[in-house]
Design a protein around this nucleic acid. Structure first.
Lengths: 194, 194
DNA sequence: CATCATTGTTGTCGTTGACAACTTCGCTGG
DNA sequence: CCAGCGAAGTTGTCAACGACAACAATGATG
């Protein structure tokens, strides 16, 4: 049974995966390095070879979250169709990710306001915003999006999506999905009468 | 020096105040009940008389944050002026609070996706949304806000504000302040060309 | 003024994160 | 081919923490 080799093989990945599972299941406070080590079948000090700190592990987890989310958003933006449907697709991706990984998304942004957070994280946020800006500038080119500083427009969209996801973190996914088109519509047409 | 009376007087409030200070200064992970007790000059088990749990303290802190924020928003909404300026005033209040109490705001919403979070917290969020809905229905009445389900519109606005604050949690306050009017403008006029 | 709930105290337990010192493994250069 | 070295994992330890239990002081109530 325990003919497990001395070396784990890929402990780092195993720890990250376990951490993500534990995070989703029992929240960030319940995350213990020792428990992750036990789950992975290694001794309590083994994780220190891969993550200097508990915080280093959390940062790595947050970073991987940003990478996956940005990749999914990029894919959604690249899908064929007009800008409006691209926007909705991105919104769905963002919100689906947020609902499926509520605790992780929370972690991703909460690491950010730590004054000594790694700059890799802020760079990851930049990349995410850039991805959103891509579809905005494209829409402006085809005349489907109003003129204006694309970075401000993209930022507004990102803010709305993120806020939507944040505010919906408890509600059921289908409920959020039903609400999303209405919110996107308000965002698209604006608060003011037309 | 230590002629401190046996009874503290208002330990509960002292603990909350200390927790908020520590939260802002050193982040949520560094928050220790024992340390708060030391700061308040009581023994390490005294806090348990007022908060069953560490979580109970955090919940109470989050709740107080919601109460203060909602009160400030209500005041901003009640100020004289047209709807547009009221909107901007609320936005400023929300963002100012978020930047000044980044960690607290984070706590306020992160308690929410805990499955067993107190329902008092979700009720507090409801009240906040209701406050925002007030100014929307008022604007619709005067024709300054487009027709549509006011709860969806208010939700969109809340999402945008919250997302803006979240995404801006690291940047300098003046920078966020400079960005805010542009974002509000995009929100007001919409993504689509007019 | 006796009583008793409230508030605070001391003592303890199991768990945790961090660190130090040691061991096993596998790769690489001679 | 193998010596040795660095990477990866191990055991042991420490101070701090949250939770709990048993006890003590306080002051309000009847």
């Amino acid at each position: 049974m325990t003919d497990r080799p001395y070396h784990h093989g890929d402990l780092r990945a195993a720890l990250l995966a376990g951490a993500e599972r534990a995070l989703a299941a029992r929240g960030p406070a319940a995350l213990s390095l020792r428990e992750l080590a036990r789950e992975a079948g290694v001794s309590h000090a083994a994780p220190s070879r891969h993550f200097r700190d508990k915080r280093a592990l959390l940062d790595a987890l947050a970073l991987s979250g940003f990478e996956r989310l940005t990749a999914q958003l990029t894919a959604a933006a690249a899908a064929p169709g007009d800008t409006r449907s691209g926007l909705l697709a991105m919104a769905r991706v963002y919100v689906a990710f947020a609902l499926r990984n509520a605790a992780l998304l929370d972690l991703m942004y909460s690491r950010k306001h730590d004054p000594e957070s790694s700059e890799e994280l802020t760079a990851a946020v930049e990349r995410l915003l850039d991805t959103m800006m891509g579809i905005i500038t494209e829409g402006q080119r085809t005349g489907e999006i109003a003129a204006g500083d694309p970075s401000v427009i993209a930022f507004t969209m990102a803010a709305t999506l993120h806020g939507f996801a944040s505010l919906n973190s408890t509600t059921a996914p289908e409920e959020a999905d039903a609400l999303l088109p209405g919110v996107i519509d308000v965002l698209a047409t604006g608060l003011l009468p037309r």
